[in-house]
Design a protein around this nucleic acid. Structure first.
Length: 677
DNA sequence: CCGCCTCGAGTTCT
DNA sequence: CTCGAGGCGG
């Protein structure tokens, strides 16, 4: 980035960060807004690192995290305050686990202790003979600030320790001082009324509060404290000396400290992942801000063996939940050509981490969508992942514009074949309506051809042939259309580079197996406009043979359930086209056989509509779907009041919520298995 | 003709 | 998953 550009970007970032902070308490999805805020803050920090000359000591980003105020006394920590190494995914947890297992002798089993990581300020408290004598911030880990008086205003910090088991002579307690989400909301409301600066999140608010020089002010802030560790302890009763991390928690609890309620002893990585997932689901509803899970080796002796590297212990790891939203800059908008020739704009951006994976592009669907959101090339945009999978552009941050952004225009020529691009007509087009889609008018467009071939092969379920392989076969001249697939020979494939005997054989075997196909699938594979999986089934069960469909009149087609004038015409015209008829004949000639129709499916699921969500343990969704259809049921994609059952597996999506809302019966996998038995 | 329900088509990353 | 649009009942 040019220096001048960086300067502008920095000032834009500062303005937008301030705006978002002011918006903080109005938004009803604070954790999501928080992610956007963090994302921008991260960018600002990294720019300032690169261009330190633009650092502004008076700017907001230097307000909270800055150096210790001189006003507080510095204290040297007797026991260094460590920080934790972060892990961002299950894979990284696995790596961490492998690393430490190597250091533990005799393959000794390791027990883990998982707890919630609260998002506040790390604090150290020292009690002598049960009396609080000092409370300090972490500072740099060696030297912190003495904020004892402010900490004393926190109700959940005991000033005097009481325990029926006896009070330690000396104890150093570690924990987190924090502010609840509710308290922050009230504080910001009040600050807004008084025209004061608003806090962006609970951590900043807690930090700000403890830095109040006047303890009375700090007291008004209503902070809380959760203890999570004991750095040092001297206790007479030797049976009370903690042997595990969990023992420490219990001891702290018995001394009347707040200790996180949610924790778990884990004996396997699976246990750990379960805990992470479980808390991930309820995280938003937690009254306190949290930023992950702390995983510890439970046994204190093993902790000692593992030790500390740098400023973090080896025996602990902080799992950080991935941000659900992030910001990025749209570098360009590209156009994709689909099977039907429809052009879809695709936003390209620099690789960005969101919801646990790195994303570099997202569909913008169509021109209307671009206009509605007012997305321009060069815009800073908020992205998220719909259903945790598919990247989606949520909105542009219009305040971040520099004036250099460009509006996107649909090209007038196809980017692949240079064919003429037109706005698509809709329905029978008697009224001259046009759809929002643009499409390439060239019937021989290479892109369309290839998309069609991919569709054809995937409907035939020849799994060995994915888009990459199809493309190579085409480039090498092995196939030109879908029918050619069935005359492929093993030697053709094996002679190509990077293809062995074995994989060639697998492909041929698979093709041979899939030559037999049901009528419904064959029709679907033909790729008739408006005729997908469902309509193909309707056509097949009504006509029984391909010949009858071929010769059906438009009126006849129109009379079928779920088929109206638009689809009827599309089907009718498809079979008037000589190329299409030739293609069907070629398929037959090359050995494609239509399986005898099994007739109307009748079973116990007749008349029931199923919707699937989540992952099933015992079978794939494809198989589950097949089973339902074989029993006479229907499977559709979305939940409505007509839905009979929602079959919900592991990690269900939004469809489960929809089902609950509409009062649709929800099936667990076990119930479903019982039903199909 | 309107509004609901479905279907079709396009899409991302590991 | 999401958006657009076809089918169809009210």
């Amino acid at each position: 980035m040019e220096k001048e550009e960086a300067k502008n970007r920095i000032s834009n970032l500062r303005l937008e960060i301030k705006r978002l902070r002011d918006l903080y308490h109005i938004e009803n999805a604070p954790s999501v807004t928080d992610d956007v805020y963090e994302s921008l803050t991260r960018e600002l920090r990294s720019l300032l690192k690169k261009y330190p000359e633009f650092t502004d000591p008076n700017s907001d980003e230097n307000r909270v995290a800055g150096k210790p105020l001189d006003k507080f006394e510095k204290v040297k920590h007797k026991n260094r305050m460590l920080s934790l190494n972060d892990v961002f995914s299950e894979e990284e947890v696995i790596d961490w686990d492998k690393r430490i297992k190597k250091l533990i002798p005799n393959n000794k089993h390791i027990e883990y202790f998982c707890e919630i990581k609260f998002d506040g300020l790390a604090i150290s408290l020292i009690y002598k003979n049960g009396k609080l004598i000092q409370g300090a911030t972490r500072g740099d880990g060696f030297i912190g600030e003495d904020i004892t008086e402010n900490l004393k205003t926190i109700n959940s910090i005991p000033l005097v320790l009481n325990s029926k088991y006896g009070v330690p002579e000396y104890i150093e307690v570690r924990g987190e001082a924090l502010m609840s989400k509710k308290t922050l909301e009230n504080l910001n409301k009040k600050n807004k009324k008084e025209g004061q600066t608003l806090f962006a999140n609970t951590r900043n608010a807690a930090a700000g509060s403890l830095r109040q020089l006047d303890p009375k002010l700090a007291k008004e802030r209503n902070l809380d404290f959760f203890a999570y560790d004991i750095a040092e302890i001297k206790i007479k009763d030797t049976t009370r000396v903690p042997m595990t991390h969990r023992d420490k928690h219990e001891l702290l609890r018995s001394l009347n400290f707040n200790v996180g309620e949610q924790d778990k002893i884990c004996n396997s990585l699976e246990d750990i992942f379960d805990f992470i997932k479980h808390f991930g689901k309820i995280r938003d509803s937690s009254p306190f801000g949290t930023d992950g899970i702390v995983i510890s080796v439970n046994d204190l002796n093993l902790q000692g063996i593992l030790g500390v590297v740098g400023k973090a212990p080896r025996y602990m790891a902080a799992f950080k939940y991935p941000a659900e939203r992030a910001t990025t800059i749209i570098k360009d908008i590209k156009v994709n050509v689909g099977r039907t020739g429809v052009l879809t704009p695709l936003a390209l951006f620099s690789p960005t981490l969101v919801a646990g994976s790195v994303v570099s592009k997202a569909t913008l669907h169509n021109m209307d969508q671009i206009a509605r959101l007012d997305i321009r090339i060069g815009d800073t945009v908020v992205i998220e992942k719909a259903g945790d999978v598919i990247p989606k552009v949520v909105e542009p941050l219009t305040k971040m514009r520099t004036g250099k952004e460009k509006k996107f225009k649909m090209p007038s020529k196809c980017p692949v074949c240079e064919g003429l691009i037109k706005k698509k007509e809709v329905g029978n087009n008697k009224s001259g309506d046009s759809s929002v889609a643009f499409y390439c008018t060239n019937p021989k467009c290479k892109a369309k051809d290839e998309r069609y071939l991919e569709h054809f092969i995937s409907v035939f379920e020849i799994y060995e042939m994915g888009p990459k392989i199809i493309r190579r076969f085409k480039d090498e001249g092995l196939i030109t259309d879908g029918a050619d697939v069935f005359t492929l020979e093993k030697e053709d494939i094996a002679s190509m580079e990077r293809f062995g005997e074995k994989s060639a054989e697998n492909i041929i075997k698979e093709i041979d197996l899939k030559k037999k196909i049901s009528l419904a699938r064959l029709i679907w594979a033909l790729g008739i406009l408006h005729v997908g999986e469902e309509t193909s089934r309707d056509l097949a069960s009504h006509f029984k043979t391909l010949d009858k469909i071929k010769t059906a009149t438009e009126e006849e087609l129109n009379g079928i359930d779920n088929i109206g004038s638009v689809v009827a015409r599309s089907v009718y015209e498809f079979f008037r086209d000589k190329d299409n008829i030739d293609f069907i004949n070629k398929l037959e000639k090359n050995g494609v056989v239509v399986l005898k129709s099994e007739g109307e499916k009748k079973g116990k699921f007749s008349g029931f509509n199923f919707v699937l969500t989540g992952t099933l343990a015992s079978m794939s969704r494809e198989i589950a779907k097949e089973k339902i259809i074989n029993l006479g049921g229907k499977v559709s994609g979305s939940v409505s009041k007509n839905t009979s059952f929602v079959l919900s597996g592991e990690d269900p999506g939004s469809k489960l919520k929809e089902a609950e809302k509409l009062g649709v019966k929800i099936l667990k996998e076990e119930e479903f298995l019982r039903m199909i038995k």
